[in-house]
Design a protein around this nucleic acid. Structure first.
Lengths: 231, 231
DNA sequence: TACGTAGTTATGTTCTACATAATACAAATA
DNA sequence: TATTTGTATTATGTAGAACATAACTACGTA
């Protein structure tokens, strides 16, 4: 009874299954051999035998990598490494889970940060087509009669900005994050749209037409000010 | 022989395995029942029987969710839903893979966007401790004699900014992306550090000490200009 | 040459069996 | 009675065998 309890202080051991270990082995294997997309990887049975585990365990590990898009397998050709979509993993977690309120707030902050910092990409990649598209959205917004239509314009406008940035990874990031902001859009609908930010969409477009990259960040900041103040 | 080849144009069928389907079923199940972290989910055998597949297939699907941190399983308690780390999936893909050069470039752009847009979070969350930490880094950089030391200061400085932002998700994002930028740091070491950007770290700190949030974005833009020009 | 057929291979799937850890409950001891 | 100890139960972890299926190979026949 007088056993020193301190001995057990750091007790919580990290329990790893065979599948976890195999997964790590495979990752190392891929890195060390610098296997490129398209290259084949060993057969399931070979892996199982080499690591001294059952094929079942190997398949669990492979199943994970397959989900992330890191490998593909065809019935006879065996398995090959593939170039995964970097944002695939993010998508898999974000979409289905009922996210913690706190995390959702942080993701929204992340979005605000992105939009303010987007300027330099926009000015370097903007095209006449994109600018015209923004014009059309602004006009549509102007003529809009219902709140729903206005919200749709709001979403379209900002989505188009991400398109303009000409960065597929960034665009994908935005697309994944979008559903998280539904509650924000709802919140937005309660705001008086005329007073929302002293800078309107039209003002932003005007700046994009000019080549005044310096003006963009603070213009976007003012546009998003209601949200920023809400932090 | 004269069969219209156009019929086969969109041939690549989406082949889904049982494990894929079970995975989706589980996701739906979790969402529809609005199961919360800590709540138990059915036993493997129950799932297998309910969906009419073998336990093995179920285990492959569960293995995936477990990797993403969506569920945890204890030997007897069965499995419970857990609040996953949103950025876990990203980490799993980014770290091990030899990323495509193009993707790496896009991630680097993403980082530049973030740092420029970071201002409002910084001004709202800055503390004296953080500012002092930045002071210390700037001083260390000033006294640095070796290139290696200067690079370390560079990394520390920007990492500290993300800390200051007080957004764990964002910080985690940055931590994951960091290794991708090693090649950039290397590139940075070849630049003449006195001419790198007309705005120095010391200038940035000065702005952070002030309450002039308007000055931040363009200051950071000028600081990062060598990189921005490299787009 | 062309076409069809059979054989081979590696993944997909199922089934059975056992190991292991955590829990609950009964039994035993002070 | 209370605390410990043993035992049964349960659900996950792991192993191994077997068969299905699709894709590739090669042979054989017209």
């Amino acid at each position: 009874m007088s056993i020193d309890k301190d001995l057990f202080k750091l007790k919580p051991i990290a329990y790893t299954t065979m599948a976890d270990q195999v997964e790590n082995h495979l990752r190392e294997y891929i890195i060390k051999r610098s296997i490129k997309p398209g290259d084949p990887i060993p057969k399931e049975t070979e892996i199982a035998q080499a690591l001294g585990v059952s094929r079942n365990v190997v398949r669990e590990a492979l199943s994970r990598l397959r989900m992330l898009g890191m490998i593909e397998s065809r019935k006879k050709r065996g398995m090959i490494l593939t170039q995964p979509d970097v944002m695939k993993g993010l998508e898999l977690i974000i979409h289905p889970t009922i996210l913690d309120e706190n995390v959702r707030k942080q993701l929204f902050e992340l979005r605000l940060v992105l939009e303010v910092g987007l300027g330099d990409l926009l000015f370097r990649r903007k095209s006449d087509e994109h600018l015209k598209k923004l014009d059309a959205i602004v006009e549509r917004e102007h003529k809009a009669t219902t709140q729903i239509e206005r919200i749709r314009c709001e979403v379209d406008f900002h989505s188009t900005l991400y398109e303009m940035a000409g960065n597929d990874t960034l665009k994908r990031f935005q697309d994944i994050l979008m559903p998280v902001f539904e509650y924000v859009v709802e919140y937005e609908s309660k705001l008086d749209h005329t007073s929302v930010g002293s800078v309107t969409h039209a003002d932003l477009v005007k700046i994009l037409y000019s080549n005044n990259a310096e003006a963009y960040p603070n213009a976007m900041r003012k546009h998003l000010m209601p949200h920023l103040d809400h932090l």
